[in-house]
Amino acid sequence: MLAQSCTPIGVGQRGHVRNLSIGLARRGNDVAVATTGQPGSKTGQTEDGVTSERQQVPRPPTISVIICAYTEDRWELMLQSVASVQEQTLQPCEIIVCIDHNETLFHRCAAYWAHFAASTPPIRVIQNKYDGHLGSARNTAAEIAAGDILAFLDDDAAADKDWLGILTDPYQDERIGAVGGRPIPVFKAGRPAWFPVQFDWVFGCAYDGLPTSRGPLAHLIGANMSVRRTLLEQVGGFHSDNHDDMDMCHRVAHIKGSEAVIYEPAATVRHFVPASRPTWKYFWRRCFFVNKGKVEAFAQMGDAATLGAEARFVWYALTKGVPRGISQAAKGDAHGLARSAAIIAGVGLAAAGHVAGRIELARRLRRQGQQATKQMLDTAAQPVGEGSKCRLR
């Protein structure tokens, strides 16, 4: 069981969520019954009394698919998301829909899927029991999940039919701890000509610069990712609402090695992008505030934190993306220069956000240090009671 050591949102630091207690040990027998019921090995005796052990082929891991939702505005998209999981060529052992602090949506979902509790796969509708939001909702679902592998799909993303099979295939290698797939953007109003593909991450989609074949990746995309349940327990669950995917990946890589977190671009989902997101306002705010928030997230990770992925992204965007836009402009693409300019602006905004985050963190740590010093001085200045004085003999 995990110690619940992190402070809930609304009580402590903004954006960080309470650790869950994933009761894996108590579910051990339930998981065995819910899957194959076959033991991993069988021990017997030969006629001459010598004990022999006959190893059987290990059963494939079971998979729980977790979809978190918070608003009725995405109702039709959520229905498509759940339906896409039901139609997978590789069926999960369950689908968990976790509703984040929305009673109306919870009751609507519970009623809609009331007759699916005994279906194949069964659909379970639950409520986020912690104070946070996305990270806490995922923790709530992970706590009750029966699968060996936890696959996370956004409520506005629909999976291709072979998504789950491809996403979880790498887990045949015991060294693999987390696997992410490729969310492909589906624009409601079309992609703006000025918007660079290197920045599709701002609305949770795959972007130019990611591996084009299966390979290690420091930061999986939360709309389409998975992790071994035992490893999620080991890292203490999700620690953040705004950077839950990044935080989990860094912590898994820290204990298992960077090769344990991999990206499988063939595992695709279609991620809806509303018209409000591919805009300049959304672009600059995400570039600035995401990277500002990362500073606090990295500080919480301790030794697991690394800026290697960010440095590689900046290098690729500036050395590949900018020249490509200029070259396209020279060939007659009127928006090529605009994309190059947007890349430079996005990198600059990200850098500014990082600096602002470092300043904010330094100020907070200084205030905490000052408060601790003041408390020590106040304690030292308090008169010692007669009963506690030492008597010389």
Score class of each variant (00 low, 15 high):
Q4P: 15
T7W: 03
Q13D: 02
Q13F: 01
H16R: 09
S21Q: 09
I22A: 01
R26L: 06
Q38S: 10
G40T: 12
G49S: 08
T51S: 12
V57P: 15
R59F: 08
Q80L: 09
Q86N: 15
E87F: 05
Q88E: 03
T89F: 11
T104N: 11
L105A: 05
Y112H: 13
F116K: 14
F116A: 04
A117R: 09
A117F: 14
P122V: 01
I123C: 14
Y130F: 03
H133R: 13
G135D: 02
T140N: 07
A145K: 11
D148G: 08
D154H: 15
A159F: 09
A159D: 05
D160E: 09
D162E: 14
L164S: 01
Q172T: 12
Q172D: 01
D173M: 06
A178E: 00
P183Y: 07
I184Q: 15
F187K: 02
G190I: 07
P192Y: 00
F195H: 15
D200I: 01
G204L: 12
G204D: 10
C205A: 01
A206G: 15
P211T: 03
T212I: 13
G215L: 15
H219A: 00
L220D: 06
M225F: 13
V227C: 05
V227N: 02
L232V: 08
V235H: 14
H239N: 09
D244V: 10
H250A: 10
R251Y: 04
R251V: 04
K256R: 08
S258N: 07
I262Y: 10
V269T: 11
V273D: 05
P274K: 07
S276K: 04
S276D: 12
F283E: 04
V295R: 09
D303A: 00
A309E: 07
W315Y: 01
P323C: 14
G332L: 12
D333M: 08
D333T: 04
L337A: 00
R339F: 07
S340N: 02
S340Q: 02
A342G: 08
V347I: 04
L361I: 06
R363K: 13
R364L: 04
L365Q: 12
T373Q: 08
L377M: 02
Q382S: 14
K389S: 09
C390K: 14
